[in-house]
Write a protein that binds this DNA or RNA. Structure first.
Lengths: 338, 338
DNA sequence: CTGAAAGCGCTTACAG
DNA sequence: CTGAAAGCGCTTACAG
């Protein structure tokens, strides 16, 4: 691979001149610049970004830490993060943490060593060690779908899960439901907690006490929803509606209901959360709370970009609104009173 | 950020000694090594990977070029690529090409400048310019779900789409079908072409001539499948079975059939390709050709790793087998003769 | 406008 | 075993 020296030798000029041509430096005669650029083409010179980074202290790379690229949510966000960032000259290094603490830390170590310019993170574990690394980083950090710890003044980008859950509950109430079950995601899940808060607060606001029998925590998959629905029907038979903390759970519930010949929405109303593509399938048509996934990725990248260009370590957080998508899985409570 | 010099000064040793401690070099007294390592911790020293790369000519980064991380296929592969590679000390830089030629080229440029150690690529456009870059790269390249051009001796990892299509057709034939429709993905799609070849050859092998009226090309989405089914029923009404080149098309077909009160499989047998999660949903249960997605990503990473460690520019390609997953959308032809 | 020199943070022969 | 020196491929004051 030819270096800047080869180009200089080839033309009989100094490396400084070549460098200046490469960097569009004003202190160079347009003619020589042109010659140099031509010569570079001719000998197939490609600038070594590693050497440039060492001097400029800018690696032009951004880290993206997410739990699992396989989750349609994160892949949608990753898509837009990449788009915005590479359009601005950055390369994105991505890591799946698989929700493992040590993978998160390995990533942060890598961020320091590789001298990344900034990161977008969705951590699930932030112990003292990880926090310490985050503090020492001295580069822009934006939290995606997570909140930064109290003492770190870093921006986050997320959807308002709490508000979204309230929308769903409001809709149930407007339809006259009051015995509303809840299927939660794993308890450690931040988004799951927020949605649960919305469920509980919505009930309390109407003077209703959440019934522990109407609340199950099985996990986050379709199978879990299936199991959860079965459990709920056993423990809380008077239920007329169920709020699933995510669409997969909601779909599992619909599956169980279909298998047990309970008609939806006549006998049971269901609302999910996420608005996955599948939820709009002809056979499902799940009423759900939609969140703007791609926009979330885009916004996270934009916030990071802003910090990068303004050379600041903080910025304004963004909480995007949710939207209730009304489809075919809800009806008024009277229809389903048993 | 402290550098190796700071560590040396702190301890009153030379930078060479510090470097040797850092690299586990044998030429260092265990005691001093230990002291150095301790000192590094104390002053929060982190090695600068950029500087190390400049010397070692190894960036420990691998590029992953895929059309769209949002596609469950590519996200599944990306997941395992990342896992295998980071477990081996590499970081992965990923790019969505969105099937745009210039994005592919920008990526290749970046690969050269950034001195990536190797790449895994799923290109859709390889014109002379791109090929030229690929040739000049001088690093291991593995093709994922694509074939390298003739004159480039580079390995690929893929599933045997042709064989998969034959499996599907064999099954139709074993059920007595002969008037079998086909819905294809966009014609430029390599995987789509292979599946189409399997369809055509399977017919010919039985002395049947593919009927142009039984073949439609609408795209790759559910909506396309919906439209395609409608078209097919109009043009090729004697059809008793349809092979969809991917599951989304198959699901779109099922949707149209359900809307038009045609029962599946009694009146129409359907096979898809991909075995998406949704295809196993209670309401869908699509018979389909499964491909080992994650394994593909894993294998691609392993092949690359092998080339990287053996310092070779080529390796054995891998063609993974497909598997027909029989579910509920097929029955014998006699049932559906009309 | 151009070139010689120093230096980014490391590693690696080479002496000792 | 340890240190001084050269060098990876660039950029950037500093002179001229």
């Amino acid at each position: 691979m030819p270096t800047i020296k080869d180009v200089a030798k080839y033309l009989g000029v100094s490396v400084s001149t070549v460098s200046r041509a490469l960097n569009n430096h004003p202190d160079i005669k347009p003619d020589t610049r042109h010659e140099v650029l031509e010569a570079m083409k001719r000998i197939n010179y490609t600038p070594n970004a590693v050497a440039r980074s060492l001097i400029s202290r800018k690696s032009n790379t951004v880290g993206l830490m997410i739990p699992d690229i396989t989750d349609p949510f994160f892949s949608a966000m990753a898509h837009d993060v990449e788009e915005v960032l590479t359009d601005n000259g950055y390369q994105v290094v991505y890591v799946n943490t698989s929700r493992k603490s040590d993978k998160e830390k390995r990533f942060l170590t890598s961020v320091m060593e590789r001298k990344m310019d900034g990161i977008i993170v969705t951590p699930d574990f932030l112990d003292e060690e990880a926090l310490d690394m985050l503090r020492r980083l001295e580069i822009p950090v934006v939290f995606l779908r997570r909140r930064p710890p109290q003492d770190l003044d870093m921006p986050f980008v997320d959807v308002d899960h709490y508000e979204g859950a309230c929308h769903a509950m409001d809709y149930f109430f407007s339809l006259g439901h009051s015995r509303i079950g809840f299927m939660g995601m794993p308890k450690y899940s931040f988004t799951g907690q927020e949605r649960y808060r919305g469920y509980v607060d919505s009930l309390k606001k109407r003077g209703l006490e959440p019934d522990p029998k109407g609340i199950v925590w099985e996990g986050r998959t379709i199978e879990c929803g299936h199991k959860a629905m079965s459990k709920l029907m056993g423990e809380f038979p008077s239920m007329t509606a169920v709020f699933a903390a995510n669409d997969l759970l909601g779909i599992g519930a619909l599956e169980w209901l279909a298998e047990n010949r309970l008609s939806v929405p006549a006998q049971m109303s269901v609302i999910g959360f996420d608005n996955l593509e599948v939820s709009n399938l002809h056979w499902i048509k799940l009423t759900t709370v939609a969140q703007p996934r791609k926009e979330m990725g885009r916004k996270a990248a934009e916030v990071l970009l802003q910090m990068l260009t303004e050379n600041k370590l903080t910025a304004q957080s963004i909480l995007l609104p949710t939207e209730l998508i009304i489809r075919d899985t809800c009806t008024s409570a009277s229809a389903s009173d048993h």
